[in-house]
């Protein structure tokens, strides 16, 4: 797939349609997000591990108000870009999305709801994919078990804000997690459970299930459980699945009455 993708990107670059291609570059045996501007560099293009590419796109679109970029996107990257566009954080007209599918191993690791973008430029998407239901064990717990579980998990929190920093959907300039009205400054662990509840709630209807927050967590806190449960709630209560089509809007921001 890598060779095929390189060929595809070379053509795209030659077309002169884009100022550069946002993708991963391998340097000294490690991958890093990079803006490819020259076809010769594409030899160093690589595909793994996953990095939050939508955030890179947002940064670059902000830095250059006019340029058009291509971006190599997985399913989650595309979902993030769509949701960001709804919140006016990226201009999809300035991005050429080059979709690639995830293989089964990666999809399983992420418990990804849809491990491929809407249009796959190279490679073949997984057929008959069904993500593991990571919320199942938690739905079955009694209330006091849940509370004890989260108390234990969240007590490990290092207040690094990594879950927020890594999240492609956390783009607020002033973050409520840093507002001392809600969360006392300078306490470790941060106050239970308000810090993590605010984060989870703010992502309701925004979280596109990329898993970056949990991967960024030094303390291995299963943040994806909360995210997944809330994604289900949004679907059950409002029929809304974030990251889908541009016409669907997050119901928490609309003025319609709840049905």
């Amino acid at each position: 797939m890598e060779q095929e993708l390189k060929a595809h990107l070379k053509k795209l670059m030659a077309s002169g349609d884009v100022a550069g291609i946002i993708a991963l570059k391998s340097e000294r045996g490690m991958a890093k997000p990079y803006l490819f501007a020259d076809a010769s560099e594409l030899e160093c293009l690589c595909l793994t591990p996953k990095y939050p590419m939508a955030s890179v796109a947002r940064l670059l679109l902000d830095e250059d108000g006019a340029a058009r970029f291509a971006i190599v996107c997985r399913g989650c990257d595309e979902r993030a870009l769509r949701e960001l566009a709804k919140r006016h954080q990226v201009d999809l007209d300035r991005l050429v999305i080059v979709g690639i599918p995830c293989d089964e191993e990666m999809a399983r690791e992420c418990a990804c709801p849809e491990p491929f973008p809407s249009v796959v430029a190279v490679g073949t998407k997984l057929e008959q994919w069904e993500a593991e239901d990571i919320g199942a064990a938690y739905r079955a717990m009694e209330l006091d078990e849940k509370l004890a579980f989260w108390k234990h998990q969240l007590e490990k929190c290092n207040k690094c804000y990594g879950c927020r920093n890594a999240c492609p959907m956390c783009f607020c300039k002033d973050c409520e997690l840093e507002n001392a009205l809600w969360v006392k400054h300078g306490r470790l662990p941060p106050e239970f459970p308000i810090y993590h509840m605010i984060r989870a709630f703010h992502l309701a209807g925004k979280c596109i299930a990329c898993g970056e927050c949990q991967r960024a967590c030094p303390s291995d806190i299963p943040l994806m459980v909360l995210n997944t449960l809330l994604r289900e709630d949004m679907e059950e209560l409002f029929g809304y699945v974030s990251g889908t089509g541009a016409d669907a809007e997050n119901p928490l921001y609309t003025k319609e009455e709840m049905q």
Binding site: L147, W150, M197, A204, L226, D233
Partner: peptide
């Protein structure tokens, strides 16, 4: 409605 769900997930009735 969403917040009630979140409370429940955390173990608060």
């Amino acid at each position: 409605a969403v917040l009630r769900r979140l409370l429940e997930h955390l173990g608060i009735d």
